[in-house]
Write a protein that binds this DNA or RNA. Structure first.
Lengths: 240, 240
DNA sequence: AAAGTCTGTTAACATTTGGTTAAACCGTCA
DNA sequence: TGACGGTTTAACCAAATGTTAACAGACTTT
């Protein structure tokens, strides 16, 4: 199953057509941001992380090509599809020159557009190099591999972690010895901060404590009303 | 930046049009092999290493889609452009389903075709960062030859693998000991990510496990909701 | 110290995802 | 056309994950 929906930036000045198209795409499980002109399009582009751009060529203020060039400056990877009313050869060529991935003449069949989007996304999915996110942590004698979702203690048997356990421990590790605010975990992992998610998080804290308790020097402390703190002591001399 | 000329396989039954197109492409520094029908096209495809295929859809003996499917079986990477006289939506969709990279309606502007070819080639050039056509793998005591599609254990009898089995195991091997995301296999091998393809993939995972289970040190682990992981342990001392 | 809030823990439950088997399907080839 | 290999679909079960409830205990504030 796919992680989350792909984000599409749609820049189209015709409000009717734009809205219809947006709805159609949304219906097909894409998360669509609709900008009404090139300026706005570029603003929105900078503010978010999109997986694909669909640009109308003919627009006031800033046409699709100019916008495409600016977008390419910021991101030379992102696929771009142009929409155009007139089927002028020069335009098509120009489009490909700025790195278009595809080109559609209006009116076009929406199903065809959908297939093109799919095809392009698939292409991209292939070469997703793996964004260098931080995946591995040393927590005292523990080692957390949060990509493969397991935790090992002193080289022993890996303990599998559930997605939530994993994300939570990762967040704590990112803030090692420092406050990890409740709110942060709730908004990042549970995507909502309310009574129930908060209780749920407490359940997960309990689970993590269970895993971690084999190491004297690692523990999760609560900071009442604030959040949690993953404490890692240097194991000097403890008992003798 | 091109090293040597790119090789194009052109399959087009109309001798006049085919010849003209071939010459035009040749003039633009592509090395073109022209086949007059699907059969011949497939023969030539098998005999050489092409960078791109341009297939007419309507052809005697074997139409473009059928040919494309056969080509895809052999090579899931190679870009395919379809040419078609009629602009039927069903055809277009069918084309994308078999993994078309683009679609052109006759008559088309030759310059546009050229741009498309360029765009596609470029895409491939950047995409194939680590294309590394790797065909042979050591997986514990197994040896996988994924070009000839067989798997041997400790030099024993080769086990033939079906195309899907083979591709899946190859993908797993490419990510040995690391996560191989479900989505990756689905988009690369099944070319679609939905409930059914996902179930189908699970069936293939089961088949692979059956092959692999004779080696204690090799196994396919699931990472719930993420994908699979081909684990290969060093066979140190196990029992004594 | 009493009330009220916040946290810890366990367990029951619901939901989603994965594993396996077998049957249906489909194109190819004798 | 009928057998065959490969693939998909269906069905069913098992495992994994997440949510909620309930209650005990801890912390804060009066």
């Amino acid at each position: 199953m796919e992680t989350e929906d792909k984000k599409i930036l749609l820049v189209e000045d015709d409000p009717n057509f734009g809205t219809v198209l947006k709805d159609y795409l949304a219906m097909n499980d894409y998360e669509v941001t609709h900008a009404k002109n090139g300026m706005e399009g570029f603003e929105k582009f900078k503010k978010d992380d999109f997986d694909l751009c669909i640009l109308d060529v003919m627009m006031p203020y800033k046409d699709g090509f100019t916008l495409a060039k600016e977008i390419r400056d910021k991101n030379e990877e992102i696929p771009i599809i142009f929409l155009t009313a007139k089927a002028m050869k020069e335009d098509v060529l120009k489009g490909y020159k700025v790195g278009a991935d595809d080109y559609l003449n209006k009116p076009f069949d929406s199903e065809v557009l959908l297939m093109k989007i799919k095809a392009i996304m698939q292409r991209k999915a292939t070469d997703s190099v793996a964004d260098s996110k931080q995946f591995e942590f040393e927590i005292g004698k523990f080692h957390l591999n949060s990509k493969l979702r397991f935790l090992t203690y002193d080289g022993g048997e890996p303990q599998k972690l559930s997605p939530k356990e994993n994300e939570l421990l990762r967040l704590l590790a990112l803030h090692e010895n420092d406050l990890m605010p409740r709110e942060l975990a709730l908004t990042k992992i549970w995507r909502d901060d309310n009574y129930f998610t908060s209780r749920s998080m407490d359940v997960y804290i309990a689970k993590l404590r269970k895993y971690l308790k084999i190491d004297e020097n690692v523990e999760i402390l609560n900071i009442h009303g604030e959040g949690f703190r993953l404490v890692v002591r240097n194991e000097e001399k403890d008992e003798e």
